[in-house]
């Protein structure tokens, strides 16, 4: 996935380093929305995110000549923007404000969520709250922003790509543990509920 888009990110980056305003525009059009979304996961102040992001793009252009050659343009943008946002807002935590589910998943996904069941969903939500900020951020980057492990490693300043993979593996294991731990101390009602769905939950 994305080998074409990666290549053109790289090309735009090279052009930007030579001071091309249209390359900046291409990068802006592609990354502004997702960086904005990412920023809002880090801090809740919407205008702070917008202001920081604006200045970030202006600086990208004015410092174009000093920009280094990077292969992972997307991850690089995330890292720099994150740092800038961190400087402006002293406490950055990956604890997005929880909102009610007001979106509609695709019919297929809806079906899968139904199979998972409301109780398990709530347990999973609870488990997510028990994770560290870093783990939650990794999950956001991986499952929502579709980032690969190379990019995640860079954004989270992990020295090796495999650390990102390990972090994710451990996180998923923790989530599952939390879900089954609670499942074992269930009331009769929910036990019955689970028996009726047991092939879904137990090996």
């Amino acid at each position: 996935m994305g080998s074409i888009s990666l290549q053109s990110d790289y090309q735009h980056w090279q052009q930007l380093r030579q001071g091309s305003p249209s390359a900046l525009e291409a990068i802006y059009d592609k990354f502004f929305p997702e960086l904005f979304r990412y920023g809002l996961q880090l801090v809740s102040d919407r205008s702070l995110v917008q202001d920081t992001l604006q200045d970030f793009f202006v600086e990208l252009y004015t410092n174009a000549a000093q920009l280094s050659e990077v292969q992972q343009v997307r991850a690089y943008l995330y890292v720099c923007f994150r740092r800038k946002l961190l400087l402006r807002q002293k406490s950055v935590a990956f604890t997005p404000e929880s909102q009610p589910l007001d979106f509609s998943p695709s019919p297929e996904h809806q079906l899968i969520l139904q199979q998972l069941g409301e109780q398990q969903m709530n347990r999973l939500k609870e488990a997510l709250l028990n994770l560290t900020d870093r783990q939650r951020e990794a999950i956001f980057l991986r499952y929502y922003q579709d980032m690969g492990y190379e990019e995640i490693a860079e954004v989270l300043s992990l020295k090796k790509v495999k650390y990102a993979r390990t972090l994710m593996y451990r996180t998923i294991a923790e989530l599952r543990q939390h879900m089954t731990k609670h499942a074992s101390s269930l009331t009769l009602y929910s036990t019955l509920f689970f028996i009726s769905n047991r092939n879904t939950y137990y090996k």
Partner: peptide, 19 residues
């Protein structure tokens, strides 16, 4: 695994705010 992936995606989806 499939349920987990969908759930993780959906939880994030319900939390994101867009420009």
């Amino acid at each position: 695994a499939r349920q987990l992936v969908v759930a993780l995606y959906s939880f994030n989806k319900s939390n994101v705010a867009e420009a």
